[in-house]
Design a protein around this nucleic acid. Structure first.
Length: 697
DNA sequence: CTTTCCCATTCTGAGACCCAACG
DNA sequence: CCGTTGGGTCTCAGAATGGGAAA
């Protein structure tokens, strides 16, 4: 909870993290009825006026009549937010976002400051930052309202840069007590006077437009036309949206063209008569690259802005991610086509390496790791790699039996390192574990994979729920996702694990497989099959599983094809342990409910049994039935919730050979569009193009 | 109308794996 | 000679974002 007093010190509110207080009554002076300020769903046109009248403090006030809509901070800074109050129009300071509404909890005269607080539902919190505040001056009741004369408001929209220097004095924020003290002691101003001193830094402006380099041209009717600076800026805004469907919308085009024309110099205006003849394509500068002359999308062309590192459990979280300058960037391109660095800057390095597919790289910190600008998943280069990956995974089927035979033999070896290797490989082959590279101490999160498993991560159960020989895994995997599963294993694997554990005694933090590391394993796998690595197993198993699951769907079960597809997909996600970690709020509620219902049901059943001897059991029977139904419904719901914990996206994007899906789609007459989204179809264009009905993984 | 749910897409962090250099 | 290390490259990972529509 951020107190009102604190708010004042932080005006305007951009970027202020605010926690919601469950009962925001702590600063209430007097009870007041809630006032909802409705939000327009779509930005209202400037001419539309709406009047909202509502009850507050048991008196009726006219609250707004104005042109507010999806007001963001951005709008506010530009002074576009206006509230028409009884005292006349006033700038509105709020963090409204469309999709959100806020409850005005209290109006605090006479300063006219009002605080609006969003309801603590997840959406408003997420979208609007939980708190909206509104400064409303000239607050008066209707009875004493000043005549509705709207004084012209002076809102200097144009300022001369540079901005005025920030005040040097650092001011401590008031405590709540201090705030109220100040409020009591503040001088009573006469009407029309609000303050004696007022200081701030003015609005923040977006960076100025940078003109396009000379080699970027705009064409009209096939001819190069040089636009004046202002027209170019506006044109580039349109160019950015070329892929947007709105650029085929008549009104959108008409409106843009009219406004664009206003920015043209007379000479340019004379030339450009129709939008249809305009070719903006080159002006959409970023986001594309040309591979042997063919236009391809770039995956990530925005360098992430400086900020604080938000890692998943990373020891570096909170550390500064420095601003990346052109001088930090290495460009990879062909020799005669070096991109123009931003004006007045230069590239750190330019190289012409055709052996790699990245377009630019820079070192991001922390941790000191290279980042790359890469082609988009839909590009030829990425598509080829994707295809190659699946071909390798596919070829594993010719070697798998032999590999399994080999590692099974290793379980009996005299050599402990061989026995360990055999067990490790078994786990990888059976449970699709990641290899588990060494993590740098202190630099990265402690997460684990097969080779790096520690003694405490593995629990052996000789006899578990009547079944014998079960192994329980419990460790943090990639991205700190918990891997917790209980699985049956081969007798010999079990004995070996038992022995490895025993050797280490009570030391849970010790590596379970001390004789194996990813490097050794890699060399070994390489000798078994060309291109074989640990992750090939993961891909292979995922594909086989998917194919099998889809095959199991008979005509009878295939009524809802998309649903059955998801079911199969889910199996793969489960195998790969792909989860979403967001805690669903109602998840625990549901469990509680189920538990309570179960208790009630058993109680009712008991009652029924006791009453059986009597005659009047009908009522009880129906009670039992009702409760039973209720429980069944809850069960279905909870299973649905459970499924929500799985993340199907990763397996779909990275593990399941799209050719399996395409073949399945053809076989059952399911349009690919029903299975893959637009972005996925782009990524898997290579597989869709192959269109092979008989594909078998 | 507001609020909540749902989903596709983007974002950027975190692994795997390769290879050359090192000890 | 051979195992280890660390930088470089590409793949995989869930969260954040934001549009749209159902409730």
């Amino acid at each position: 909870m951020l107190f009102f007093s604190e708010l004042l010190g932080r005006w305007p509110l951009q970027g202020v993290p605010v926690k919601l207080c469950a009962s925001p009554v702590s600063w209430h002076q007097s009870p007041s009825s809630l006032l909802t300020i409705p939000m327009a769903r779509k930005p209202l046109s400037p001419i539309s006026h709406t009047t909202y009248t509502t009850q507050c403090c048991n008196e009726e006030y006219e609250i707004f009549q104005g042109t507010y809509s999806s007001l963001s901070f951005d709008h506010i800074y530009r002074g576009q937010g206006l509230a028409y109050t009884p005292g006349g129009p006033q700038p509105l300071i709020t963090s409204y976002h469309n999709h959100s509404s806020a409850k005005l909890l209290q109006l605090i005269p006479p300063s006219g400051l009002a605080l609006c607080m969003a309801e603590p539902d997840s959406n408003t919190q997420r979208r609007s930052g939980a708190l909206a505040a509104l400064r409303w001056q000239g607050f008066r009741s209707r009875s004493s309202a000043a005549p509705k004369e709207k004084p012209p408001i002076e809102m200097p929209l144009e300022r001369t840069l540079p901005r005025p220097p920030a005040p040097v004095e650092r001011r401590r924020e008031m405590t709540e007590d201090e705030f109220w003290k100040w409020r009591e002691e503040e001088p009573k101003y006469e009407d029309g006077i609000k303050w004696t001193s007022l200081r701030h830094n003015g609005p923040a402006f977006p960076p100025p437009y940078e003109q396009l380099p000379d080699n970027i041209k705009f064409y009209y009717n096939g001819e190069i036309v040089t636009l004046n600076a202002e027209a170019e800026e506006v044109a580039s805004l349109y160019a950015k949206m070329l892929d947007h469907k709105l650029t085929r919308d008549e009104t959108f085009r008409k409106n843009f063209f009219t406004d664009w024309k206003d920015t043209m110099s007379p000479e340019v205006k004379k030339v450009i008569a129709s939008l249809d003849q305009c070719d903006f394509r080159e002006m959409a500068e970023f986001g594309y690259f040309f591979l042997d002359g063919h236009k391809q999308r770039i995956g990530n062309y925005n360098i992430s802005p400086p900020g604080l590192l938000v890692g998943r459990n990373s020891p570096n979280r909170g550390k500064l991610k420095k601003k990346i300058l052109p001088e930090d960037v290495t460009i990879n391109c062909s020799e005669k086509e070096v991109p123009e660095p931003p004006p007045g800057r230069r590239w750190g390095q330019v190289q012409h390496n055709p052996a790699v597919i990245w377009l630019a790289s820079w070192k991001e910190s922390p941790p000191e790791k290279l980042k790359y600008m890469m082609p988009h998943a839909s590009s030829k280069l990425m598509g080829e790699n994707d295809w190659k990956k699946y071909e390798v995974a596919r070829s594993l089927k010719h070697h798998r039996a032999q590999i399994q035979e080999q590692y099974s033999k290793d379980w009996d070896s005299e050599d402990k390192s061989l026995r360990q290797r055999g067990v490790v490989l078994y786990l990888i082959d059976k449970f699709a574990f990641r290899v588990g590279n060494k993590t740098k101490d202190g630099m990265t999160t402690d997460t684990f994979g097969c080779c790096s498993l520690r003694v405490k991560h593995v629990t052996l159960h000789e006899d578990h729920k009547g079944e014998t020989k079960k192994v329980e895994f419990n460790f943090m995997g990639k991205s700190s996702i918990l891997y917790k599963k209980m699985v049956p294993v081969e007798e010999k694997v079990f004995r070996n694990l038992q022995q490895f554990k025993e050797e280490k005694g009570e030391k849970g933090e010790v590596d379970l497989f001390d004789q194996v590391n990813p490097q050794v394993l890699r060399t070994y796998l390489k000798s078994l099959m060309k291109g074989l690595t640990t992750k090939v197993f993961r891909t292979h198993i995922a594909c086989i599983t998917m194919e099998q699951q889809l095959k199991n769907l008979t005509h009878h079960h295939i009524k809802n094809k998309v649903l059955s597809f998801n079911e199969a997909n889910r199996k793969v996600a489960e195998l790969c342990n792909h989860q979403r970690t967001k805690t669903e709020l109602h998840w625990s509620d549901l469990q509680d409910k189920t538990e309570a219902s179960t208790d009630e049901l058993s109680l009712l059943k008991k009652k029924l049994e006791q009453a059986m001897q009597g005659i009047n059991t009908e009522e009880l029977k129906s009670d039992v039935k009702r409760k039973d139904d209720e429980l069944r419904k809850l069960d279905v719901k909870s299973r649905m919730e459970e499924n929500k914990q799985l993340n199907l996206n990763s397996s779909n994007l990275y593990y399941i050979d799209p050719r399996i899906i395409v073949a399945w789609c053809i076989k059952w007459g399911v349009p690919v569009e029903e299975i893959y989204t637009k972005a996925q179809r782009d990524k898997f264009a290579w597989a869709i193009h192959m269109n092979n009905e008989n594909f078998e993984f």
